[in-house]
Design a protein around this nucleic acid. Structure first.
Lengths: 212, 212, 212, 212
DNA sequence: GATGAATGAGCGTTCATTCAT
DNA sequence: AATGAATGAACGCTCATTCAT
């Protein structure tokens, strides 16, 4: 592994552990075994380093999600696969959710995070609208549902350390993770069953008829 | 407003805007109009100041939630009222969710946050188990549902700044907030309708009968 | 002497010896015996410290020049006294000319130096025009003469270290300084004798007559 | 233009603009379009680069002065030509005076500057002593006059940026430069007229007679 | 001749904290 | 309760320079 990669790895860890402001370039250099000045040689600024860390994560996340969608057949399966993949990615990359969690509450990288999430969000929205066309313009609009699913998944990881104070078990143990996953899928089933019954708006139905 | 209170107010704002590490005692002193050394006179350390800010918030949150529950009659209403109150509290106290958001991803205040949330979490769990006794030991266990509801509510605020990049409208405008609220209530209705049908486990039902 | 004053003294010396960029806040702190952070506490920035050093010098220079002028009777004596005082001030404050020398060749303090020199320059100009009204609008205009006198005096000190390579004697020894001074006064005599013969412009002379 | 020459050019500019300490090898490399390490390949150290820049200037200055002297007939004309050429050289090479200005106030290149100026100074001195033999051992000794002329010329350029704050016009505009030049020549005339009357010391005159 | 990576020292500045008053 | 001065540690970053290729 090259020096640049080792710096990224160390920064990833430290940003996750103590946050952007809490991590110093000195500590990052020390952990990666690189010279302090090399960080600025490779990444210009500490901000730039965080940017690279985030870019790397979103690159991987994007790849993971595309693959998971590609392997599914029906639309309904794709939604489930996407949620499953996201959930798995977060549990495999604990630092990622921690970093995004903190940087999303204001900071210089909001725009970068937004830029990265936009295509993912759009893909999810289109997929949902296609699968459940009846939800458009209702309380269960695709964007609302996405935020809800995103929130119920991400929060479990973001707040896992608080949860370990509230629950009797370690929320990140394999058993706990499996239990959480079953809950998410169960809840998805309940919600999808409900919204499957939503009527497609009249105007759209006429439009469909005409096209036939 | 006394100097101590003004310091708390300034710290609250700055911790919310730039995070604990990003806020300096100098800036807090400047914004509150107090002398830098006074912060340590009143709060001993910067950590202690954050602790006081958090304590103040959880004190208010606890009061708000108790009141909202007290004003409801049926169990079902109490759950809804609690979720409603939490949601309103977060939208009225933007800095609170930002601070908790960041401090929950590791940090020295995890234990404090856990300590404050424990009674709220327990109240919620008991309320749910009482209202829907059938969910115990199922995928829709009270603790899972609470995490889910908490996540879908809190995330909307935590990620509001990212959402403003993903949506076409300001997620914190009164209209957007109202729309989100309708979605949360709608989703609650769907989920509660589903779990209301869960059968109470046999052993427990017998137990209930015996108590009668 | 207070700490702030000691910092100013040390900064004065180091700026003179190695220039603004060559002097580090660490060295200034070390030489003054003060804590490094105190420099920024008292002077905000290193720039600000240089500003204070310059202000202090120009304050003293202004006082010195006013006194020297006040003690003279005739106009002709005042000019000589001013030049004499300036010359003495530079020889007593070796660092001052070095600092001004360097900062005058571009830099952030040009405007400050200009601001300080303006009243001195104006005083000199008025004094000359009053004493030798005939020089106005000639090759020997007051402003040109001032620049010339200023240059021939200041350069001797600014370039003294180079001069010590060019001359056989130390240019700053009392004997050398005395010799230089005699030259300056001698040259002044020559020039003043010449410009004393300049005719006052016609229009002005008529004006004078009318006033009589 | 070769890379080495481009580096020299960039260093020249930057040393002139921000001084030796203010100019970094990185910026010099960037401006010249060369690799940072190449500077050390060609000039060994940053000091060495400054040395080369100065050498280049003094080479040109020496050539210019020799030519100007060569084209004059009488001794008196040669002195005037030399001063004229120096003055023109400074106005054509703004960075040169700035660099020398700063390096003359202490620094590691004092000796180098002295070495370069020595022959120029000696030439000037001999020329003056030859032309006005009466000034030897008087207040108007050749070395004093040279320093005076040098100072009144050089200062105008060194302090031009300060002067632009003191005067109403741009001191480097063609008009201002022409006006300054007329002043310098006028003053030279006054001084030369005066020293032309100085009696040659008795002993020397006898010496001269004997030589005839 | 030319380059990208690497280094150790040092930069100006800010930090939370202490203390005497 | 409040303040101005002071402190030592640490901050992000830039420096001139070296070296293998």
């Amino acid at each position: 592994m090259g020096t640049k990669e080792r710096i990224l790895e160390a920064a990833d860890e430290l940003f996750g552990e103590v946050g952007f402001d809490g991590a110093s370039t000195r500590k990052i250099a020390a952990r990666s075994g690189a010279n302090k000045a090399l960080i600025h040689y490779h990444f210009k600024t500490k901000e730039g380093l965080l940017g690279s860390v985030l870019d790397r994560y979103y690159q991987r996340l994007g790849d993971t999600l595309s693959q998971s969608i590609a392997q599914s057949n029906t639309l309904r399966e794709r939604i489930a696969a996407m949620i499953e993949a996201y959930s798995d990615f977060l549990s495999r990359n604990r630092n990622f959710s921690r970093i995004v969690q903190r940087e999303s509450s204001g900071g210089k990288n909001l725009e970068r995070i937004g830029r990265h999430m936009k295509p993912l969000f759009e893909t999810g929205r289109e997929l949902m609208d296609e699968t459940y066309p009846g939800i458009q313009n209702t309380d269960m609009a695709a964007s609302q549902l996405l935020i809800t699913f995103y929130g119920m998944i991400v929060s479990y990881f973001s707040y896992s350390e608080v949860l370990s104070h509230l629950l009797d078990t370690d929320p990140l143990s394999p058993e706990s993770l499996a239990r959480r996953k079953k809950h998410v899928h169960g809840l998805m089933d309940i919600v999808f069953a409900a919204i499957a019954k939503y009527e497609v708006p009249q105007t759209e139905r006429q439009h469909e008829i005409k096209q036939q």
